[in-house]
Amino acid sequence: MKQRSAVTVLVVEDDANDVLLLKRAFRKAGTEPFPVIHVVNDGESAVRYLGGVGEFGDRRSHPLPDLVLLDLKLPRMSGHEVLAWRSEQLPLIRIPVIVMSSSQEASDIARAYDCGANSYLVKPVELEVLVEIIGALQGYWLRFNETAAVTEPRTFGTRLAT
């Protein structure tokens, strides 16, 4: 188990309601560590955020996340496309991405893994279940899971000092 100061989660989700419910689930789960949640609403913004481009250029206000929660059906650039882009970004590929989609279609699931997703979760209708999922996710991915350093010159030394 490791110690971290601030844990960041990037949520890529275009449905404002789902974002609200997700934030509530994080709060309700009450599992440590409670992350700082950044939200972008489409695939293209996710790529720009991860790449530190444009409005996301400042890593102090938009730090590289420790975990990405990615919807599949997104405007401008789909979740699958984001995954495909990420698979070619060598340091960024180390950041775990968990797909959270409504789709339970085998083809979507297979394609997500083929594109390098680290996990695939189906969005439940019951809030109670979502809370359970988020609690488990926090424990596993934010607490126990060992991540590799994402060396990036601009942020080196500020983010990795944990």
Binding site: N17, D18, L20, L21, S101, S102, S103, E105, K123, L127
Partner: peptide, 22 residues
């Protein structure tokens, strides 16, 4: 069609259920 049902029909359901619980 089925794909769209699985995505689009369930999103508002999550909202209904989720916010009622909240």
């Amino acid at each position: 069609f089925a794909y769209s049902v699985s995505h689009d029909l369930r999103a508002p359901l999550r909202t209904m259920e989720g916010f009622s619980v909240a």
